[in-house]
Design a protein around this nucleic acid. Structure first.
Length: 353
DNA sequence: TCCTATT
């Protein structure tokens, strides 16, 4: 649906490495997706597992900070089959994971012209809605995302927000046209400038971020998103956290799978047995149920080979014991539609030493 | 005065 770069502009695009046209068949605009608003603690393996549940993945990448290894909260998935990409958008877009609602959409062709196109806007009238702000900016180009920040308690606008344009030149034009201007009937002029670069975070900010993103989340599926936790006792946080967020931990599944944990074939973690799923149940329902409790590395719905219907049970693998225990405590007896789930740690009969 | 969308 997006017009491709070959649309005819004789301008200085495509410096030397065209993304397509090599053999006439490399158009990935229908297989390549971008995924936004991922939970901070999702790993590459979890990311791959989630999107691999839809269909064969050609490649996927969770984008991480080059230095800290921390997830930047978005990633790319390239499916082998365009139909699977379409299916991923239809079934995974809007999926709630922890406190985030993920967004799944086709990736635009990568290009320098779409980078640094994010604007920070302040001084907005408190009454201005996101839609009104978009209307104000839309005259300068195609808006990819917009957001108005609100007070976490009252929900009222803080008068600041973000506008991401498709192209950086559009953002530049918007600054020229709107910075210092008064929107229609507003008492004060707004300030429009490029947003801070995410990589500008100080070490202190990063540390704070680590503490916050690791604070225990609520107990219960899919609902309230309270972020009001106090920083934990410093003594209780450091090592497990650092391990969790280090590059070693992120890529460590391959080499040390199963060590010290009840491992399943799916990899290291705590395997959870989920019983009384409906015949129509699919992987996404397991992600929805367990995702809010913490790091989920794998989900599997057991299906009848011939009918392809769920046989009534499935498995979920979670990385951390306390999150798994919380999920079990909360979801065992949980009513899903007309059914009451039974949830417990998987009892392993194999491999009795 | 900053939500985290370009490999």
């Amino acid at each position: 649906m997006e017009s491709q770069v070959g649309g005819g502009p004789a301008g200085p695009a495509l410096p030397n490495g065209p993304l397509l046209g090599t053999n006439g068949a490399t158009d990935d605009s229908k297989t390549n997706l971008i995924v936004n608003y991922l939970p901070q603690n999702m790993t590459q393996d979890e990311f791959k597992s989630l999107f691999g549940s839809i269909g064969d993945i050609e490649s996927c990448k969770l984008v991480r900070d080059k230095i800290t290894g921390q997830s930047l909260g978005y990633g790319f998935v390239n499916y082998s089959d365009p139909n699977d990409a379409d299916k991923a958008i239809n079934t995974l877009n809007g999926l709630k994971l922890q406190t985030k609602t993920i967004k799944v959409s086709y990736a635009r062709p990568s290009s320098a012209s779409i980078r640094d196109a994010n604007l920070y806007v302040s001084g907005l009238p408190k009454t201005m809605s996101q839609k009104e702000m978009e209307q104000l900016f839309s005259q300068y180009g195609r808006i990819i995302t917009s957001r108005i920040l609100v007070d976490q308690v009252t929900g009222v606008s803080r008068g600041v927000g973000f506008i991401r344009f498709d192209k950086r030149i559009e953002a530049e034009e918007a600054i020229k046209g709107l910075n210092g201007q008064k929107p229609l009937g507003a008492a004060e002029p707004i300030t429009v400038k490029f947003a801070n670069n995410p990589s500008q975070k100080t070490g202190q900010a990063l540390l704070t971020h680590l503490y916050q993103s690791s604070a225990r989340r609520y107990a219960g599926p899919l609902h309230h998103q309270t972020q009001r936790f106090r920083p934990r006792d410093p003594q209780s946080s450091p090592l497990s956290l650092i391990a969790r967020f280090s590059p070693i931990a992120i890529d460590g599944m391959s080499g040390l799978a199963g060590v010290g944990l009840s491992g399943g074939a799916a990899g290291a973690g705590w395997c959870i047995f989920v019983y009384n799923l409906s015949p129509e149940a699919d992987e996404s329902v397991l992600w929805q149920l367990f995702g809010p409790f913490g790091a989920v590395t794998n989900v599997k719905v057991i299906r009848d080979f011939t009918t392809n219907k769920c046989k009534g049970f499935g498995f979920v693998t979670m990385t951390n014991y306390d999150e798994a225990a919380m999920a079990i405590a909360s979801l065992n007896g949980y009513r899903l539609g007309e059914r009451v789930l039974q949830v417990s740690f998987k009892t392993s009969k194999q491999h009795k030493a």
